[in-house]
Design a protein around this nucleic acid. Structure first.
Lengths: 335, 335
DNA sequence: GGAATAAACGATAACGATAACGTTCCACGG
DNA sequence: CCGTGGAACGTTATCGTTATCGTTTATTCC
């Protein structure tokens, strides 16, 4: 009956109360399971609420409780296939706990990042999750401070500033290097992604250490946007500058796709003359040909873990710090 | 100063009023640009609000106005690369108008779709946008009814139920067929995507008409999930059932990628023995090799148009109906 | 100069939910 | 029989903002 549906949204707790023959307060108690109502009264209230299709007004609730049941979720670029999976995981975990996600994209500058973290304040989100922030530490901590709770994904922060869900990029990078060395590669270069990426620094650290264990050394890494185009130009520069390269470790899979394009354009066979390895394991990695060897990041799990950690930090005073998740080497056809 | 930031969120209009030496009402008027305040008073109020870093409380505002400045946005699956671009466009347009997106994923059944449309009601969104709904007409209209405004993307509805942003799939399909015929393909089969997709029906219509113009006819289309896996199994079934096929028109690019895999597995050369054409032009279409010929859908523009249409329908009583956007044939290497 | 008029502002009362505190009523022990 | 305690409710006040209506002051015109 669309006639009733049209009025649904106007039902208040007072009307439910009237229908059930009790006071609004009793309805509130019953609906929030606070006790203090007899079994039969509860019954009456519940059925009245059901009948009228009552929905508590979130504005009124929020006004009293100063809780929105909403989590702000900030990603650099939803168009990058790395992030939707994380969002999915986060959304599932949030919904399961009765929370919703308010999503925002950064896209441009790190200034914009601070603005958006700030904008969440206006919406009175109960907490925020920020994916791969690029802001320098001090600015990031300052932006996070006014929020009641915060969790970072792929970035570390002091325990009292934010919780942290980290991929162990250092270990992943180490696996990548060992794998390449096993395959007999000796001249490995690095496409390093954005200069101010925390995860990027971790990768570089792991790469450096592991190369050293093999008494090897890579040329100066080339920084670039974390996109296909960024990867291609970075690879072009490396190929032009250095001869004899036989492997490229890329910041992420999109960069690796770009590197593959550059190789193809230069007539370099992958993996025969050049090995390619990426990070993330986005869907295209498996679909391209040759299929991309990459370090799978458990995106969905990270999203879920982030929400769970945030909720726990929202509820309790002794803040848990975080979780480290190991990436997994997916050996395919480019190495 | 993190000390002040910690208190920011507690500043109310009354404190701004006190700081400016006026009443809360005057502050409200100034901040909402309603006039009725002298220039110097406005000045004082503005600077006091600024100084204290005042942010109006959205709960209180919503409680009075029953407006949330939020738009519910429902997509089937954010993990499908078709949708993030639409979301980007929508988000940009929404932010520009001072609105935010509340995002939800359907993922599973069409029952879930109805539930989620309904769940937006709880959040008192000012309007909703639903991408590619799969619900049957009657159920969809019923779910939409209680909302103050609604816009559908790639689905039609009566003007008073919802606004509509459509891709002209029928025309696109027609282009696809003409292109294949020009290239000398005669035995064209269809991978049709989900059976209850409205856009799918439009494609089928265009395909049927255009084939008829060439005195041709396609075998029974095969329905499948709009995913890589769905496309592969559909293609396998077609290849097994029908001999002499020389072209496959796919519901979307993901299906086409799956079809390509099936061809490769069956030792069929693309495009030499089999032409492949997709829909959407998601990023992978250009990146795969051979690069996929496809009908580009202007995703970003659609997201923007959807928000603009929704806002216009929210404001005025005489509802605009909608916009049709033409897809664009991108000829690449698979045809 | 006085009245009419407009501009600038303030007091009050909602909006809907709920915490805090009262009230009523019944059961039970001394 | 009274008093005590607790369960089951109801009343009131409050969250922050803003529409409505009043009040005050300044401005204009005859």
């Amino acid at each position: 009956m669309s006639r009733t549906t049209d009025f649904e949204s106007k039902i208040t707790i007072a009307e439910v109360a009237r229908a059930a023959g009790v006071s609004p307060m009793t309805v509130s108690r019953v609906l929030n399971g606070r006790g203090g109502a007899s079994a039969e009264t509860s019954e009456r209230v519940l059925s009245a609420a059901n009948q009228l299709n009552y929905r508590p007004n979130p504005f009124a609730r929020g006004l009293r409780s100063d809780r929105s049941k909403t989590i702000g979720f900030l990603v650099p670029d939803i168009t990058n296939p790395f992030f939707p999976e994380i969002i999915r995981g986060a959304e599932d975990a949030a919904n399961a706990a009765g929370y919703n996600l308010l999503l925002s994209n950064v896209v441009e500058s790190s200034k914009r990042e601070a603005e958006l973290i700030d904008a969440f304040l206006i919406h009175r989100v109960d907490g925020i999750i920020v994916c791969s922030p690029r802001l320098p530490d001090s600015a990031l901590h300052k932006a996070l401070a006014p929020h009641r709770a915060a969790v970072l994904i792929n970035r570390e922060a002091p325990k009292d500033v934010a919780g942290t869900i980290m991929t162990d990029y250092e270990y992943g990078a180490s696996q990548a290097i060992n794998h390449l060395v096993e395959r007999g590669r000796r001249n490995i270069a690095i496409i390093a992604g954005p200069r101010n990426s925390y995860g990027g620094k971790c990768r570089l650290l792991g790469i450096g250490k592991t190369l050293a264990e093999h008494d090897m050394k890579a040329p100066e890494p080339v920084y670039c946007d974390p996109t296909v185009a960024g990867g291609r130009t970075a690879a072009e520069r490396l190929l032009a500058a250095i001869t004899g390269l036989d492997a490229l470790v890329c910041y992420n899979d999109l960069n690796a796709v770009g590197a593959m394009q550059a190789c193809r354009a230069a007539g370099i066979a992958v993996p025969h003359q050049m090995a390619l390895i990426g990070f993330d394991d986005i869907p295209i990695a498996e679909l391209m040909s040759p299929a991309l060897t990459t370090l799978r990041v458990h995106k969905r799990e990270m999203g879920e873990a982030a929400v769970r950690l945030l909720l726990s930090r929202m509820m309790t005073k002794n803040k848990q710090h975080g979780v480290v998740i190991e990436p997994e080497l997916m050996v395919r056809e480019t190495t």
